[in-house]
Design a protein around this nucleic acid. Structure first.
Lengths: 132, 132, 132, 132
DNA sequence: GTGGTCTAGACCACT
DNA sequence: GTGGTCTAGACCACC
């Protein structure tokens, strides 16, 4: 299962690990890569796989549970809440992209970069190898 | 002079004030809006204008000095290092945009958004009111 | 651990405490007394041991991180960057001595002291009790 | 006269300009390069030559006057106090070198450099071009 | 006037 | 527990 999930985190990043996990899961669910009812890796399992403190994983899962995306089942692995909305339409998913893109746009303006230059870079980056 | 500089910070942001300042100045210099040799506002002056503690400003300035962008002159206002590269060409400035845009691209991929959808949003955001 | 580290500072000195710490750590690492991967004392711990404000320690550590010598790990103690050059060979360490010695040489010349006189004094001082 | 004096200061140094001047003069007098009765450049003259604020020069001169090395004469240029001890013997001059050399020795010990290595570097530096 | 250093202490975020 | 950020304010040094 770990392999299908392919959680990836960057310990050196400015973004805290638990938040990287939360947003990662949100996007996976929104895009339909993880579906309602799917089990997710246990805290310990994932903690070991990512070489992270279990409490960090736990915190992320708790937040996702609080927002109703995950569901805790006593003695069993957590799973994506069945009643949770499945893959959202692109029109809705796009809103999850807005914050990051809005920030990039603000920086581009401050740098006084021509619009086409910024767009060209973005297009290149969208085409890149997903591991980068 | 404050008006020409128009430093802007957001106190509620997750990004620390001192770092907002650092990156703000970097972009201003890279885009040529502040040029080599220009004096920057004094610590106290800017602190008062932004309603921030002087040490916060000082910390930002110190970091910019450490990276060679600002120059300290004892007893005088700091200024952009004269030997510093002036306004960088777009080809170079674009590199300052890459991190933010790279992150947005990664998110777009995770959301499995069609390329043109992401590009369209970015284009819209680039056209927006430069309130940031 | 404090004892092994034996950080020493002089509060009365003209050199600021945080800089004394920075250079102390640099030399310890260069000489191999502290090695890549070693943890350094926590900010609070060292602050208490030296009877100094924690922020002063923090400032020193931040500078060492900025130059890539220390590595920050969120929620954990900082440590010497693993990828950092371990103990440097004498040929390289000597460069860290050059500034202080260069200054002394300039003064000796201005004083028009015979070379052997200056050298003799230096030799004596090198033999002295390492109280510093 | 400026040429014979050849005051040299480094504005980028950590040592304040006024102190560089004070110690420069002390060493020149101690070594006999400037003798009792010699006139020194006026504040304005030297300030212009060094591109430094006149008050900085004035502060240095005042300190030297306070320690009895210089003498103020109304309406005339300051001069080295006639009663001031002329060139001091090497045995005495060496004491002026001790602080800088002591510091270098302490650093050499912390770097765990072999004695002969440090001595060799010092010897090289003593032989170097005085302008360095 | 300029910036620098340090202290005291609150509050936050992360592991 | 770890470090980070910020404020309030004192005191110093320099120009």
């Amino acid at each position: 299962m770990d392999e299908h999930f392919a959680f990836s985190i960057q310990t050196g990043s400015a973004e805290p690990i638990y938040r990287q996990l939360v947003e990662h899961v949100r996007r996976r669910v929104a895009s339909g890569q993880i579906r309602a009812g799917d089990e997710i890796p246990s805290v310990r399992e994932l903690a070991q796989a990512l070489a992270v403190h279990p409490m960090t994983i736990s915190k992320a899962y708790s937040l996702l549970e609080a927002e109703g995306l995950l569901e805790r089942r006593r003695g069993l692995a957590m799973r994506v809440a069945p009643q949770h909305q499945r893959a959202q339409p692109a029109a809705s998913r796009i809103e999850l992209l807005r914050p990051a893109l809005s920030r990039a746009a603000a920086e581009a303006r401050q740098l006084q970069l021509p619009k086409h230059t910024a767009l060209k870079l973005f297009e290149e980056l969208l085409d890149q190898d997903p591991t980068t």
